[in-house]
Nucleic acid binder design. Structure first.
Length: 687
DNA sequence: GCTCCTCGAGTTCT
DNA sequence: CTCGAGGAGC
């Protein structure tokens, strides 16, 4: 007998979903791709002939609806935590010891060797999927952990993501009424390479690494584009569930997810104790290059759920899990040339020009060598083969030279005798690491940098005056000193290449808006050697007006805290210079730049508040507040906000992606809190 | 005079 | 982020 179209469609869908499950979750396909495709074709034809049979969770409906105009924000009902990082074996040992100590102090009996569930840490994007009665309702990115973006339409196009969880009849487990499951979306290395090859052939821009490619693919407005990208996903955690008994351990949770049709990573293993963790780390590290996807470390999770609950979480990371990162990626490349850059203060900085090489997922072609001492210490020569690393995973640095590969013709690096930009003599003060161009303001490099600094965000904060524009203005000799900026007309600006009347007008308006400034900003903008943002603020608070500051002698200057003989002399030298005094006059002149700032009596008392006496350091990023805003708010409450962690630090407030400061605070035993506590503090309550 | 701490300055890539 | 150096305290 023949089936009616409705039954046939249902049968086809069940077969396709079953094949998806075998293929993605069990990794054991039972049909060829051609057979699978034939089923899809038949279902499509059937649905085309009988549109009433189409259901939203039909496998043909992965790419559905019109492109969504935006990615709506979605708040996670349970915050998506991040993990603490371990970089060395000792960090893992300490993590295990802390877990033991905590359990012991809570009176919980734990085995000598805790059981851990270990899995690779994929280099992709964390996502959260929400299923109701087994049906996929929405999908969101991790975002900041509290709020992510709605990427449902794009996630639906991933064939390894079930639109419908396996039913109660198909599984040996209960299907939850509600399930919020978390995992990682990533692009397998091979798919990434093919995608880039095609993009390069088509003259489109290529992605720097699989992670960026995955992120870019998920951010497509048109789901059809996402559907064509080779994205995959593994699931490894549950944020929220209802209508089902939770598995007792992480490894059972993974099994349970797989049973529901959610793909889990085949590399996850149970390991015993620290030794087991470290052995797993080494094994995976050795096989890293052979894995079909990119990983940046491994994750250990205390397996038993009862112990996880006992351990709880701190700030924004659980105490029962840690990510053990692989060492920073290093690459080997050729040092082609060493050039010297001239900074605002005339400092000559040697920069290595490298044969471009991919390190840690980005292409690096420059690396700073800091100064001549550094070059000698590392014995770097032009033509050398060098090992490059991204320090703190961000700024490229040359780790060392591969001496075996030094060619005969390798050249030593010599400090130029004259400035490469202006030709003035280069001087090196005995005992100082830096070499300087003696050209001062007549050196166009120093002038450009000084002008750039003057209008930079933390100084006068003029928008629209970027590096390129300043370069043009200096080269065209339209601007020589900061006061000249305010003499620019729209007509003059619009004559410059790539500058329309509209942008020119915007720049003039932006300059005008910043005429009203503050004394600390102005003092910082001047770029007096040794006077940065914080010293400028101290000077402004102490003297109250530019006039009184300019009249102060060395002794009066040294009365300001943090000002010693060196900075006092630097200030005096600056204000004694006729050129500088003339520039200040032009800046203040109502017929010139006409800058204005409020003056006061000076010596503003430091704020007294509930936090007086505390030295607080802030690191990482927060959701509702920037670090700058938090700093200001804490200072208003009387706290001293410092830039680095030391023995004197009373508290470290760590946000997302906290770096070395967090590690240092932990090493020094400084108390660490998170954004929650920051908010509590700012509301005036103790923590 | 020594040591610790903080600030300033310079830097990369997307 | 990191390094160098000035400032402050012992």
């Amino acid at each position: 007998m023949t089936l009616g179209p409705a039954q046939r469609a249902k049968a086809l869908r069940e077969q396709i979903v079953a094949h998806d499950y075998r293929y993605y979750v069990l990794d054991d396909p039972s049909v060829t791709d051609a057979e699978y495709d034939a089923l899809m074709v038949e279902l499509r034809q059937l649905e085309a002939a009988h549109p009433e049979l189409i259901s939203p969770d039909s496998p043909t409906q992965r790419v559905g609806g019109a492109p969504s105009p935006e990615f709506r924000p979605v708040s996670h009902r349970v915050g998506m935590l991040s993990l603490d990082n371990a970089f060395a074996d000792e960090d893992v040992i300490a993590f295990d010891r802390r877990a033991h100590e905590r359990l012991a102090s809570d009176g919980v009996a734990a085995p000598v060797d805790l059981l851990y569930s270990a899995e690779p840490k994929l280099d992709g994007l964390a996502i959260s999927l929400y299923y109701e009665n087994g049906r996929l309702i929405n999908a969101a990115t991790r975002g900041d952990g509290t709020t992510g973006e709605d990427v449902t339409a794009n996630i639906r196009t991933l064939r390894c993501v079930p639109l419908q969880l396996r039913s109660a009849e198909q599984t040996r487990v209960q299907v939850p009424r509600e399930l919020e499951v978390r995992g990682e979306v990533f692009m397998p290395t091979e798919g990434f390479m093919r995608l880039n090859e095609r993009a390069a052939a088509a003259g489109e821009k290529v992605f720097a690494n699989p992670r960026n490619a995955a992120a870019g693919s998920l951010r497509q407005l048109d789901p059809r584009v996402t559907a064509a990208r080779p994205l995959q996903a593994f699931f490894y955690a549950v944020g929220h569930w209802q209508g089902v008994a939770a598995p007792d351990s992480h490894h059972e949770l993974l099994r349970w997810l797989a049973e529901l049709g959610l793909r889990t990573c085949p590399e996850s293993r149970m390991v015993r104790g620290v030794e087991g963790c470290l052995a797993y780390y080494r094994d995976l590290g050795a096989r890293r290059a052979q894995l079909p996807y990119q990983i940046d470390g491994v994750v250990y999770k205390v397996d038993a759920r009862s112990l996880q609950e006992q351990l709880g979480q701190v700030a924004r990371a659980p105490r029962w899990a840690i990510a053990h990162k692989f060492p920073a990626d290093e690459a080997i490349t050729l040092l082609r040339e060493v050039e010297f850059q001239v900074g605002r203060t005339g400092t000559l900085t040697p920069v290595a020009r490298l044969e471009p090489v991919v390190v840690g997922g980005v292409t690096v072609s420059n690396a700073t060598l800091h100064n001549m001492d550094e070059i000698e210490r590392k014995d770097v020569r032009i033509g050398d083969t060098v090992i490059v690393r991204r320090a703190g995973d961000v700024i490229p640095e040359i780790v060392r030279v591969v001496l075996d590969r030094r060619p005969q013709h390798a050249r030593r690096v010599h400090l130029p005798e004259s400035c490469p930009v202006c030709g003035h003599a280069v001087v090196r003060v005995a005992g100082e690491a830096a070499a300087r161009c003696s050209g001062g303001y007549s050196c166009s490099a120093q002038r450009k940098e000084a002008l750039r600094h003057f209008v930079s965000r933390r100084a006068l904060d003029v928008e629209g005056l970027g590096d390129k524009l300043i370069e043009q203005l200096v080269d065209a000799e339209l601007v020589r000193s900061p006061a000249d900026f305010w003499a620019l007309s729209v007509a003059q600006l619009s004559e410059l290449p790539r500058m329309g009347e509209k942008s020119a007008a915007n720049v003039v308006t932006a300059l005008h808006e910043r005429r009203q400034t503050t004394l600390p900003r102005l003092l910082h903008a001047l770029g007096i050697p040794g006077v940065g943002e914080s010293t400028a603020a101290a000077l402004a608070a102490h003297f109250g007006s530019l006039q009184r500051l300019m009249e102060a002698d060395q002794a009066a200057l040294q009365a300001v805290s943090d000002i010693g003989p060196v900075i006092a002399a630097s200030l005096r030298a600056y204000f004694d210079d006729a050129g500088h005094r003339n520039e200040l006059k032009r800046l203040r002149d109502p017929a010139g730049a006409a800058l204005e700032w409020p003056e006061h009596e000076g010596r503003k008392p430091t704020a007294e508040g509930p936090l007086t006496g505390l030295t607080i350091v802030i690191t990482g990023s927060f959701t509702g507040i920037t670090r700058e805003e938090a700093t200001e708010a804490l200072q208003k409450l009387g706290a001293k906000v410092a830039g680095s962690v030391s023995g004197k630090t009373s508290l470290l407030i760590a946000g997302e992606e906290a770096g070395s400061k967090l590690a240092k605070a932990q090493a020094l035993g400084v108390r660490v809190v998170g954004e929650q506590e920051l908010k509590t503090l700012l509301s005036g309550q103790p923590i």
